[in-house]
C-alpha cells in the first residue's frame, strides 16, 4: 500500500480521534471510576488510593440489605406508576388539543410551566400544599365539613400518593409536548385515507395515530423512565424517604449512603446496580423501538401504495 493510500485510510480515524478522546475521558473515565470505587471500602476522609480493596463485598452486602432492597422496590413501583399516569394524561391531553384551537400556543406555554420549575422548589411548594393544617388541600377538605384532613405526608400510602401527584404534575407536560409535536407531524394522508374508509375518531386514534406515534412515544417513555428512576430532589424535600422507608427511592438511598453514612464504595455499588438496570431497560426499549419502526414503515408504505 502506498504512503498516500495509507494516509487516506487513516484520515477518518484522525478526524475521529479528538472526539474519541473526549468521549473516553468525559464518559468512560467517570463510569470506570465509579465501577472501581464500588470494589472499595472507601470513606470520604480517605484518598481513593488509601481505601481498602474488598472485591464484591459491597454488592454482596447490598443484596442482603433489607433497606436497599426495599428502596429498590419503592423505586420500581414509583417509576411504573408515575410514568404510566404521565403517559396516559400527557398523550390524552395531546389528543384532545390536536386541533385548531384559538390560543393553543398560550395553553401550551401554560402547560409546560411546571417542568421549568426547579425540582427543589416543586418539592417545597407541594410540601406546603400538603401541610396538615395550613395546606390548601386539608383546608379545603375541612372547609367542606370533614373533621379530619388527609395525612398526606404522615401515612405511608398517602405519602407515596403525594410524591406521585407532585411528579405527575411536574412531568406530564413533557409527555404532552412531545406527543403533540409527534401528532402534528403525522402524515395527513394516512388520516385522510382512514376518514375516506369511514373510520371514526376513536378508530383513527387507536389504529392510526398511536401506532404512527409509537417510536416517539417509546423514546419519550424511555426518557421519563430513566428520569423517574433517578428522581431525588422532590422526594427529598417532600418526605425525605418517609414515613419509614415508604418513599425512599434508590437515588435518595445512594445520596444518604454517601453523605450521611460516609460509605462511598457502597454508594458507588448502588449506583452501578441502578445503571445496570437502566441499561437493560434502555436496550430492551430500543429493541422494541426497532421492531415498532419496522412495523410503522410497513404501515406507511402500505398507506402510500394506497394513495398511489
Amino acid at each position: 500500500m502506498s504512503a498516500v493510500a495509507r494516509a487516506n485510510r487513516l484520515t477518518p480515524y484522525m478526524f475521529l480521534a479528538p472526539a474519541t478522546v473526549v468521549l473516553v475521558f468525559a464518559l468512560l473515565y467517570p463510569i470506570g471510576y465509579m465501577v472501581y470505587a464500588s470494589f472499595l471500602d472507601w470513606s470520604p476522609s480517605q484518598r481513593i488510593g488509601e481505601a481498602d480493596f474488598i472485591g464484591l463485598r459491597n454488592y454482596a452486602n447490598l443484596l442482603t440489605d433489607a433497606a436497599f432492597l426495599e428502596s429498590f422496590w419503592v423505586t420500581i413501583k414509583f417509576a411504573a406508576v408515575v410514568v404510566t399516569l404521565e403517559m396516559i394524561i400527557g398523550v390524552g391531553l395531546a389528543l384532545l388539543l390536536d386541533r385548531n384551537i384559538r390560543g393553543l400556543s398560550l395553553l401550551r406555554t401554560i402547560f409546560i410551566l411546571p417542568m421549568m420549575i426547579a425540582p427543589i422548589v416543586v418539592g417545597l411548594m407541594w410540601r406546603y400544599m400538603y401541610h396538615p393544617t395550613v395546606g390548601i388541600f386539608n383546608r379545603t377538605i375541612k372547609n367542606l365539613g370533614f373533621e379530619q384532613g388527609i395525612p398526606w405526608l404522615s401515612d405511608s400510602t398517602w405519602s407515596f400518593i403525594a410524591v406521585v401527584i407532585a411528579d405527575v404534575w411536574q412531568w406530564t407536560p413533557f409527555i404532552f409536548i412531545l406527543a403533540l409535536a409527534a401528532m402534528q407531524s403525522l402524515p395527513r394522508s394516512a388520516l385522510e385515507a382512514a376518514e375516506i374508509d369511514g373510520a371514526n375518531e376513536w378508530q383513527k386514534i387507536v389504529l392510526i395515530k398511536i401506532p404512527l406515534m409509537m417510536p416517539v412515544l417509546i423514546v419519550t417513555l424511555l426518557l421519563r423512565l430513566i428520569d423517574a428512576f433517578k428522581v431525588l430532589e422532590v422526594i427529598m424535600v417532600l418526605t425525605n424517604g418517609g414515613p419509614g422507608l415508604s418513599t425512599e427511592i434508590v437515588a435518595l438511598r445512594i445520596f444518604r449512603t454517601a453523605q450521611e453514612f460516609q460509605e462511598l464504595g457502597e454508594a458507588a455499588a448502588m449506583s452501578n446496580l441502578l445503571l445496570i438496570m437502566l441499561m437493560a431497560l434502555t436496550i430492551g426499549m430500543f429493541m422494541y423501538t426497532k421492531i415498532q419502526e419496522a412495523r410503522t414503515a410497513r404501515m406507511l408504505k402500505a398507506a402510500q401504495a394506497e394513495d398511489e
Binding site: 433497606a67 395525612p151 414515613p243 419509614g244
Partner: peptide, 10 residues
Amino acid sequence: GTSLSKVLTE
C-alpha cells in the same frame, strides 16, 4: 429514625 417513624405513623 426510619424504624421509629413506623412507630409514630403506623
